[in-house]
Structures are given as structure tokens and as C-alpha cells.
Nucleic acid binder design. Structure first.
Length: 447
RNA sequence: GUGGCUGUAGCUCAGUUGGUUAGAGCACCGGAUUGUGGUUCCGGAAGUCGGGGGUUCGAGUCCCCUCAGUCACCCCA
């Protein structure tokens, strides 16, 4: 058939292909995340990409509702692609908690979709690595959430990051005591910009847009402007004149959270108490977590979460409080690539077998499979190209060891093991089970 | 979603006031070296100038629309 006009191959805005080199890095991050989650006893679950619209909407905020991909399916149902993994989890918990029991600790690594404008590290389709604890209000769950974030970043090779922590009850309590409850969401949003636009602009907005009095604003600033070591911040916050029980509960929880982290060995320099942050989605009710890389704060938080005690209430009358966080895999990877802290190579196989001549095909197949049985990852070149070209290919793809067995070696019953980084080659006896070869390769790889 | 900037070979970019056949470096393929890569030399292939329309004798260059990237706002992983 003749192609009259070719269709331009392209992807949608904010949607991307992933090439082998990137994909190996993505999978390495996923494996690491999985390992840390399991170390804390979280189990995997999965939920559908598509949910009923009514499940998804009205849980985050008006803004986030606008970003949900929505359409009518073939049966005329109003459906949407999941915007995050937390709302589907709330639905999941409401539906299955009877079978599973509480506390439910689960993790989920999956794609989510947001129809917003793109930017570096912000895509319309991206992977989130969530972990949550459902069905307990214990502060231990909050502490462990922060611990997982901490361990996770370390395991991913990020040494320099800061875990920003706050508790929503402090701000909402304070605002309530100022009799401005109705504007809580807007006030939180304005305050959140403090570090970005500065005190003056925030003050102006609070006065003019929110119609707060100067006294109200100055009380808010008294709280957000407390600086110093974590202990000191907590001490000073307690002395604020205007407070109520919610405010005090928030402070107490925050204080317990901090001392729990210290007890678990998290160094203070990675924990940053910030009484002005209130972000995250509207459903957060207690602890709030955000994680910033020291070298790239502008890319935003790479792992965020918090406590949400009422999320499942729209689906069930059971009380299902939860706490958890979400690692933004694609955002973190974008940051790591920008910082050059990713390792290269586009092959997962450390061993490369040179294919000399068709008459030795079965020898190569045999060697390959014996090495694989010994736990090595092995790629056999598929055609008898010139050895120089094969080595060039192996070098470029990032193989560590080349096994060279041409006619000469095979008649002698040996083969050559070449380290592609150093260029050093050694002759090794090619015995029946390849034991000597395997041993030599493993020794070489270990250094 | 609104606004700014950008789009030329796989990648990074040149391309004059609009003027013949659009260039370079790196990467790729082949050879020098018919059994040894990452150095060198020689050669080769590769471009709908993001796409569409318009102005013009003539458009990579000017205008409009569109798609994508990027930045800011907003929001967030």
C-alpha cells in the first residue's frame, strides 16, 4: 500500500516518551521507593486510572477540579482520569476497609493526570509514589510518614534536602481565634506566598483583599515570623496571646512529631519547621510535609503529604483518618538530571558477549545462559559483526564486561574477559559449567 | 487557563537589509586496522528550516494561525 501522506509522529503537550536510559533511572527510583515502603510495612495496591467523576471532584479544591481530565465514556457515564492517588485511596478504603481492617498501610506507584500548563518537572502525565496509613489518628503514623520521606530521599542518593513540616491546626486555629474562619482557605494561600513575594505584599493582600484588621494581620505575622531552631520556634509559638484549643493541639502534635523524628535519629538540619506553610490540598487537616532539594528549591516539593482526617467521609460513615505522602518521581528525576546526579548507561546488562562467527553460535548461547543462571545479566550480540564494532556498541551502551571467545580461544578451551572500563583483559579457562568464567567476572565486577 | 521567550540534521547551535544548491561541532555509519571499544586520520549518510496559510519575482528570514518546549502568574509532584 502506498502512503499518500505520513502522519507526523508526536506526543501531546505534557505527555512524554521515555527512552531506555531514562527508563532505567525511573525504574531504579521505583525499586528504591518500593524497598523503603516495604521496610515500614506498607503493602502494594492498585486502583483504576478512570473513576466516576463524582468520586474525583470536590475533594481537593476548585482549582484542582478544573485540572481533572473529564469526559463521557462509551456508555454515557461521566468519568475522569485520577488527579492523584489519595482520592482514589479514600474511595478504595471506604469500599474495602471492612475486609482489610485498620490500620491499613498501603503504597501505590502509578500514573496520574493533570490538565494544567507545563513547566520543567511539571507534566500532564506523571508518576506518583504514594504511601499512606489509614484508620489511625496516632501521631506515630505521622512520625513514620516523615521518617519514610527521610529514608526515601537518602536511599535515592539525595543527601542535601530539607523536610518542611507544619501542622494545619496551628494556622487554622489561630485564624479561627481571630474570627476569620470563613476566609481560611484564602488566607492560608496568601500566607503561603510569604517566602516568595515577601512580607509587604502579603500584608497588603491580607488587608485589602481579605479585609483583615491591622491587629489580625499583626497576630498572624507574629506567628509566621518566629525564627530559629525548631525547639525555639515551638517555645515562642506557645507564648502567642491569641489562641484556642485547635491551635494548642496543633502545636502539641507538631512538638511530638519533632521529638519523634529526633528520637528516630533524623538530624535536625534536615528538618525545617515552617509555621507559614499551609499548602497541599484542601483536604489536609493536621501535619503537613514538603521536601525541597537544597540544590534546586525552585523545582518545588519532590515529596509532599500530610494528615487528612475527613477525606473518606464523602464515601462512608466510618471514621477513616489517614496520613501519607507522595513522591513525585518525574519531578525528582527532572531535578536529578538537571543536577547531573544520574548515572549513565542504557543497558541493564553488565556482561556483553561478542559474537564471532555463526559456526560458534551454540557456544555463545550456552555461555550466555550459564552466566545468566549464575545471576548475571547478559546480552549476546545477535550477529557476527566486526569485533571492533561490537566492542564500540558495548562500550556505548554501558556494559561492564565483554566476553570474547573466537576460534582461537575456543580451540584452546579458553575465553577472554575484558573489563570495558579499564581495558584490561584476562584469559580464563572455559570449563563445562563456566564456573571459572563466572568467578572471574564476579570478581571483576566487585571492584 | 493568561502573558513573555524559543523552535534550523539524533544533540548543541551558525545562517548578513528577504536573493543561487541551508552550514559547523558532537553523535551516527563505513574505511584506514579482514580478532579488540572509549585516541587519530579519511570518507559517507542524515534537514517536511515544528506544521498550515499569507505577503513577494523570490521566505529559514516578514505577517497571521496552530503545535510543542520554556519562563512568570496560578496551582502543584
Amino acid at each position: 500500500m502506498y502512503l499518500l501522506s505520513l502522519i507526523t509522529p508526536r506526543t501531546l503537550k505534557g505527555f512524554r516518551d521515555h527512552l531506555p536510559e531514562t527508563m532505567l533511572q525511573r525504574e531504579r527510583l521505583i525499586d528504591t521507593a518500593r524497598g523503603v515502603y516495604r521496610a515500614y510495612g506498607f503493602s502494594p495496591i492498585d486502583t483504576p486510572a478512570l473513576e466516576y467523576e463524582e468520586i474525583l471532584l470536590g475533594k481537593g479544591s476548585e482549582e484542582t477540579d478544573k485540572q481533572v481530565y473529564r469526559f463521557e465514556d462509551h456508555g454515557g457515564r461521566r468519568v475522569g482520569l485520577r488527579f492523584d492517588l489519595t482520592v482514589p485511596l479514600a474511595r478504595f478504603a471506604a469500599q474495602h476497609i471492612g475486609d482489610l481492617g485498620t490500620p491499613l498501610k498501603r503504597y501505590q506507584i502509578a500514573n496520574v493526570w493533570r490538565g494544567e500548563n507545563t513547566q520543567k518537572g511539571r507534566y500532564r502525565e506523571f508518576v506518583q509514589c504514594d504511601f499512606d496509613t489509614i484508620g489511625t489518628q496516632s501521631i506515630v503514623a505521622d512520625i513514620e510518614t516523615a521518617l519514610v520521606i527521610h529514608d526515601l530521599l537518602l536511599a535515592l542518593g539525595c543527601e542535601n534536602f530539607k523536610l518542611h513540616i507544619n501542622n494545619r491546626k496551628i494556622l487554622t486555629g489561630l485564624i479561627a481565634s481571630l474570627e476569620a474562619e470563613e476566609q481560611i482557605t484564602s488566607i492560608l494561600r496568601i500566607l503561603d506566598k510569604l517566602s516568595k513575594v515577601g512580607r509587604d505584599k502579603v500584608e497588603e493582600e491580607l488587608l485589602s483583599r481579605q479585609k483583615l484588621t491591622r491587629d489580625q494581620v499583626s497576630t498572624l505575622f507574629q506567628l509566621t515570623e518566629i525564627k530559629g531552631a525548631n525547639e525555639k520556634i515551638l517555645e515562642e509559638a506557645k507564648t502567642l496571646p491569641s489562641r484556642n484549643s485547635e491551635f494548642e493541639t496543633g502545636l502539641a502534635e507538631l512538638s511530638e512529631l519533632i521529638s519523634g523524628l529526633t528520637a528516630a535519629g533524623v538530624p535536625e538540619h534536615r528538618v525545617h519547621l515552617d509555621l507559614s506553610i499551609a499548602r497541599g490540598l484542601d483536604y489536609y487537616t493536621g501535619s503537613i510535609f514538603e521536601t525541597f532539594l537544597d540544590a534546586m528549591p525552585e523545582i518545588g516539593s519532590v515529596c509532599s503529604g500530610g494528615r487528612y482526617d475527613h477525606l473518606a467521609e464523602t464515601y462512608t460513615k466510618k471514621k477513616l483518618p489517614g496520613v501519607g505522602a507522595s513522591l513525585g518521581l518525574d519531578r525528582l528525576l527532572a531535578a536529578m538530571q538537571e543536577l547531573g546526579s544520574t548515572s549513565g548507561g542504557s543497558t541493564p546488562a553488565e556482561v556483553f558477549i561478542v559474537y564471532f562467527a555463526a559456526e560458534h553460535r551454540e557456544e555463545y548461547l550456552k555461555i550466555s545462559s550459564q552466566l545468566r543462571r549464575a545471576g548475571l545479566r547478559v546480552e549476546l550480540y545477535p550477529e557476527p559483526k566486526k569485533i571492533g564494532q561490537q566492542l564500540k556498541y558495548a562500550n556505548r551502551r554501558g556494559h561492564k564486561i565483554a566476553v570474547i571467545a573466537g576460534g582461537d580461544e575456543l580451540t584452546q578451551g579458553t575465553c577472554q574477559i575484558k573489563n570495558l572500563d579499564s581495558g584490561a583483559a584476562t584469559q580464563v579457562v572455559l570449563d563445562k559449567g563456566c564456573e571459572t568464567v563466572i568467578e572471574a567476572i564476579k570478581k571483576d565486577l566487585a571492584m
